[in-house]
Amino acid sequence: MAEKGNWSKMLKFFREVKAELKKVNWPNRDKLVSYTMVVIVSILLISLFIGGVDLVFSNLVRLIILD
């Protein structure tokens, strides 16, 4: 008997999820492509910055240890 209640709760949950997803304002293809490009460029810039900082600090540590 308890399993029947669990199934009905799950079905209700998925119906509510479906209803909420219909309310979402999905971007069109052009916006999606532009947002994706912003994310990719941001990731590249941040990774270059972190890589540069890592290179500087690793060289500083190397100089301190070797001297």
Rank of each mutant, 00 (worst) to 15 (best):
M1D: 02
M1C: 03
M1K: 01
E3R: 02
E3W: 02
E3G: 01
K4I: 06
K4L: 04
G5F: 03
N6K: 07
W7M: 07
W7Y: 05
K9I: 00
K9Y: 01
K9V: 00
M10N: 05
L11P: 01
F14S: 04
F14I: 08
R15F: 04
E16Y: 05
E16I: 04
V17M: 02
V17Q: 05
K18A: 09
A19R: 12
A19G: 05
A19C: 02
A19H: 07
E20L: 08
E20H: 06
K22E: 12
K23Q: 13
V24Y: 05
W26R: 09
P27C: 08
P27G: 09
R29D: 13
R29C: 07
R29N: 09
R29K: 13
R29M: 12
K31L: 13
K31A: 14
K31R: 14
L32G: 06
L32F: 12
V33H: 13
V33W: 10
S34I: 14
S34A: 15
V39S: 12
I40D: 13
I40P: 00
S42F: 15
L44V: 15
L44F: 12
L44D: 01
L44H: 01
L45G: 11
S47R: 06
S47A: 14
L48Q: 08
I50M: 00
I50K: 00
G51N: 10
G51H: 04
V53S: 09
V53W: 08
V53N: 03
D54R: 03
L55H: 08
L55F: 12
L55T: 03
F57D: 08
S58M: 07
N59S: 08
N59D: 07
N59E: 13
V61D: 10
R62V: 04
L63H: 05
I64F: 07
I64Y: 06
I65V: 11
L66N: 12
L66W: 04
D67N: 12
D67A: 02
